[in-house]
Design a protein around this nucleic acid. Structure first.
Length: 564
RNA sequence: UGGGGCGUCGUCAAGCGGUAAGACACAGGAUUUUGGUUCCUGCAUUCGGAGGUUCGAAUCCUCCCGCCCCAGCCA
């Protein structure tokens, strides 16, 4: 990570931290944490939080813990833990051995609960789930006190211990904080702290039959770890009162402070874990790492680099406004990153065969071609040329539209890094009229240089020598949804799925230098976009490329339609 | 409806009483063997609305309007 990245722009959270540092509130310490629940893969919204928490720690010389908030065994699994660990690491962050699990604190948490009971601040409630809901009241009416609210400390202690021992079935009892059933904040109406759940936990197995609720576990986990700033999203705003209440009852000395910021939303995609799970489970995508998914794994497979994701997270800012960030900003960050580091190459996606009639049969020559037009340090490569080449079907038009600068009757174009090519005739299917191949001639005096007679050749197209071409499968990805807010009408986001979000092209033809592309490596196919050898399916000799993102395309704007 | 949060350009977002940063998007133009990159230029007389305080308000006060969150034994 570079220095400029670390010295991120200011936001209200950093403002708070800098102020706390100034007043020495936490003894000069800044300790944050990233606390995902291992019940799904990390997505770009999590990435924002990761960058925020780890970024702050780096910036202020503090620490950031990676904590798996695994207090509800249903849905949690090791697979998710592994993916989270891998993703945070891949994003470029290091927790320096401070990898924690809320489940490691179960015993401590239990003791805290006992302490609360002993202090008369918590009780075992034996109302049913439905009754508890009824007793809770509504936004306008206060709740009613549970008939079990005034059980003696001894009875509560006994019952709680027996809950732990497994004497009762799920739902028979819960542990509740004794706060205020008439509070205007519903969260404070004697919130549940522990529930019986006889479900094996992926880490603690069957050791525990009761599990702490988020509100109880999270604040205390923060306290246990000595977190100074507990950064979370806005929907926990209401819970802060409870966070503070629990800490107030049980923790002396330095106390963590919860700060909320607005979660990220990105247009044309979804960041709701529930809905992402649905996409995976129902097979609308090929898995959590499908390149169309907004997951870290998906973006990695798509070919996004962590640098681009970090840049995006830094550029969107941190505030409390409800937001919908335009996905074009993410794409911009990806292009900006790849433009600098991706070597250029030529590949033809939808091949049209071209015979160069005046090029000697059997002859082959090689061009020395730069790998990056603006960066000589990236070196050069050899690209073979011969009598038969492939060009993009789209780079030829029998009746060229206005402003079209490519090949057509009576026209010539520059073959990138090579000669000027002149159209002669087209061979067509006599029934359908489909253009089967082109016959052209080349100007041998234009080898990688301008025509000696000074004539202007406007268009430049890419090509691949047929004899040397490497066939490949190329996967074209587009936005997963075709509306900016697929979840706006919450019930049926599936109807907004973009049916054209994946198009598989084969065979495509690559220049030989791409033949053994390393899986995961990205390059630019000139004039087309950035592509990345698929990290699962690509093999040396049998490349499979994913389109990361197209190039900006001002022709598309002029012509009013896609060119790829 | 009770409580909480939030309203600054199409989208993010600075601004913290001294007279509206920046980015993306968009629109022009220059350079270009990628219709790419790069480089110029334009893009909020106005900050949800209405009052008020002040020499001066996006920033302070009052009222109003709109959007989001909370009634899981999820997090």
């Amino acid at each position: 990570m570079t220095q400029t990245e670390a010295s991120s722009p200011s936001d209200f959270i950093r403002e708070i931290i800098e102020n706390d540092l100034k007043t020495n509130k936490h003894g000069g310490i800044t300790a944050t944490r990233f606390p995902p629940e291992p019940n799904g893969y990390l997505h770009i919204g999590h990435a924002k939080s990761v960058c925020l928490n780890f970024g702050i720690a780096m910036q202020y010389g503090g620490t950031c813990n990676l904590r798996l908030d695994d207090t509800d065994p249903s849905g949690e699994s090791l697979e998710y833990v592994d993916s989270i660990i891998n993703d945070v690491h891949w994003l470029g962050f290091d927790w320096g051995g401070r990898l924690f699990y809320a489940s490691d604190y179960f015993e401590k948490l239990y003791q805290f609960a006992v302490e609360l009971i002993t202090a008369g601040k918590a009780y075992v409630c034996s109302l049913s789930a439905d009754e508890i809901r009824e007793y809770r009241g509504s936004f306008t009416e206060p709740g009613k006190e549970s008939p079990y609210r005034n059980r003696s400390v001894d009875e509560n202690l006994d019952l709680f211990q027996r809950m732990r021992a497994g004497e009762f079935e799920d739902g028979a009892h819960v542990l509740r904080a004794k706060i205020d059933m008439a509070s205007s904040n519903v969260v404070m109406r004697d919130p549940i702290l522990y529930r019986i759940k006889k479900e094996p936990h992926y880490r603690t197995g069957t050791d525990w039959l009761i599990y702490p609720m988020y509100d109880f576990a999270h604040c205390l986990s923060d306290a246990i770890e000595g977190i100074t700033h507990s950064i979370c999203t806005l929907e926990f705003d209401n819970n802060r009162a409870l966070y503070d209440w629990i800490i107030e009852q049980l923790i002396t000395g330095r106390r963590p402070r919860q700060i909320e910021f607005a979660r990220l939303n990105v247009s044309y995609t979804l960041l709701s874990k529930r809905k992402l799970i649905e996409l995976v489970d129902k097979g609308y995508v090929a898995g959590w790492d499908d390149p169309r998914m907004p997951t870290v794994a998906g973006m990695r497979r798509r070919g996004y680099r962590p640098e681009a994701i970090r840049k995006f997270c830094s550029i969107i800012g941190v505030a409390k406004n409800e937001n919908l960030v335009d996905i074009s900003l993410l794409e911009h960050c990806v292009r900006e990153d790849l433009n600098e580091v991706a070597p250029r190459a030529m590949a033809v996606l939808r091949p049209l065969r071209v015979v160069i009639d005046n090029y000697p049969e059997g002859q082959t020559e090689e061009f020395e071609v730069p790998n990056h037009p603006q960066n000589q340090a990236m070196g050069t490569r050899k690209v073979p040329f011969s009598r038969v080449i492939y060009i993009e079907r789209d780079d030829f038009h029998e009746n060229p539209p206005k402003k079209y600068r490519r090949l057509g009757p009576g026209r010539e174009v520059r073959l990138r890094n090579s000669y000027v090519l002149k159209y002669e005739r087209a061979v067509k299917n006599e029934h359908t009229g489909e253009v089967l191949e082109l016959h052209c001639t080349y100007d041998k005096d234009t080898r990688q240089g301008p025509p000696p007679d000074g004539r202007k050749v406007e268009g430049v197209i890419h090509w691949v020598s047929a004899e040397h071409a490497v066939p490949a499968e190329i996967r074209l990805y587009d936005r997963l949804f075709n509306v900016p807010e697929p979840a706006a009408e919450s019930d049926d986001f599936l109807k907004n799925l973009n049916n054209g979000s994946l198009e598989i092209l084969t065979p495509c033809y690559l220049e030989p230098s791409l033949k053994n592309a390393a899986p995961g490596s990205a390059c630019q196919f000139e004039r087309l976009g950035y592509f990345c050898a698929d990290n699962k399916d690509s093999r040396p000799g049998k490349p499979v490329f994913n389109r990361v993102v197209t190039l900006r395309d001002s022709w598309q704007k002029i012509s009013g339609q896609g060119t790829i």
